[in-house]
Amino acid sequence: MIIKVKFDDDFIQYISCSTKVGRKINCIQEDFLDWIFDEEKNIKYWAIENGERICPSYDANALVEWLNNVRFKRGIAKANLITNPQLKVKKIVYY
């Protein structure tokens, strides 16, 4: 399934994932946001200013990493970032 990830009108990315994961993407969005804003669980996707973490700084790569390594780490349904979707977009998530 192809999912359009919109951060704002000018920044859009696409991910490919299994239909099972895609159907749940809107329901699990809050879990992703909890993870991305948790400074203890996630340090890779934080902006640093003057040596201190100030806020999350992420794109669809963070969502793909979270889906593959946190949410569905034991499953075989892995997500991938894609640049030019060949199939129709089935869902849109907004960040």
Rank of each mutant, 00 (worst) to 15 (best):
M1Y: 06
I2L: 05
I2A: 07
I2V: 14
V5W: 04
K6H: 06
K6V: 15
K6N: 10
F7V: 14
D8Y: 13
D8W: 14
D10M: 13
D10I: 12
F11Q: 05
F11Y: 15
Y14D: 01
I15P: 01
C17V: 01
V21K: 03
G22Y: 05
R23F: 13
R23A: 08
R23N: 11
K24P: 01
I25R: 05
C27F: 10
I28E: 06
I28A: 01
Q29V: 05
E30A: 14
D31Y: 02
D31V: 05
F32I: 12
F32N: 10
L33N: 11
D34A: 12
W35N: 13
W35Y: 15
W35C: 13
I36T: 08
I36P: 09
D38Y: 11
E39A: 15
E39K: 14
E40Y: 09
K41E: 13
K41P: 03
N42I: 08
N42W: 03
I43T: 15
I43Y: 06
K44E: 03
A47I: 14
I48Y: 15
G51S: 09
E52F: 09
R53C: 10
I54G: 01
C55N: 10
Y58R: 01
D59Y: 01
D59I: 08
A62V: 07
E65D: 13
E65N: 09
E65P: 07
E65S: 07
W66P: 00
N68Q: 08
N69Y: 04
N69S: 07
R71N: 03
R71M: 03
K73F: 00
R74K: 15
R74F: 07
G75D: 10
A77D: 14
A79T: 05
N80S: 09
N80P: 00
L81M: 03
T83L: 10
N84C: 05
N84M: 06
P85M: 08
V89G: 06
K90V: 02
K90Y: 04
K90C: 01
K90G: 00
K91R: 11
K91V: 07
I92W: 00
I92V: 10
V93K: 06
V93R: 02
Y94C: 13
Y94G: 06
Y95C: 11
Y95T: 04
